[in-house]
Design a protein around this nucleic acid. Structure first.
Lengths: 96, 96
DNA sequence: TTGACATGCAGGCATTTTACTGCATTTCAT
DNA sequence: ATGAAATGCAGTAAAATGCCTGCATGTCAA
């Protein structure tokens, strides 16, 4: 876990939309991009464009916080908590 | 602890320079801007300008991660771990 | 009181981030 | 085989970030 990885993880967590996506995936993983968009609309009507959500998902994936796999023409996104746990154990822990 | 505060905290942590400043202040608090600059040079020779460090300190202060007080013509910076603890307890904890 | 010390403020510039629109590609179902 | 469904890719624009330089302000010490 080097500085660049910690940067990616904390930057990914530094946006309310991305934190909400993680919260969604913790409730239930294996969600498609469309399902995630729909959940945003359902929750508060304030919808972001599909491409915007997709970019957030890319950033979460680059940080290792989600994993993806293709099922036919849909790509499913799942939560991966390992980076948060590593960032906590290897850096944040000393402040807690 | 609302979304904006969590944004500020995680964004502040998403930069290696700022994490290093926090690490420095945990070793010993009540450091001036000049002391912090000097510690950076001493550690690896790779120095950032005084104003750049000052901007990082501003961001850390906006996130509540450091507190400041004036002693004559020097401003001392001290660590405040409360925001990290709150962010952990109120959001991050569920993933650990 | 004057000069050096510590910091603040303003502005510039390149890069990144966040949002969008429009078009292309792949895959499934009819 | 054709159309709809799910996603990807490219490009744009505004805002934020990270770095810098130069000048101004306030404070202590000789």
């Amino acid at each position: 876990m080097n500085d660049e990885e910690l940067d990616l993880i904390f930057k990914a967590l530094g946006d309310a939309t991305r934190r909400r996506i993680l919260d969604l995936l913790q409730e239930r993983s294996e969600r498609s991009l469309f399902e995630i968009c729909a959940s945003f609309v359902a929750a508060d009507g304030k919808s972001l464009s599909r491409q915007t959500i997709s970019q957030h998902l890319d950033m979460l994936e680059r940080a290792g916080l989600i994993t993806t796999s293709w099922k036919g023409r849909t790509k499913t996104h799942s939560l991966n908590v390992a980076p948060m746990q590593m960032a906590t154990n290897q850096w944040l822990k000393k402040y807690l």
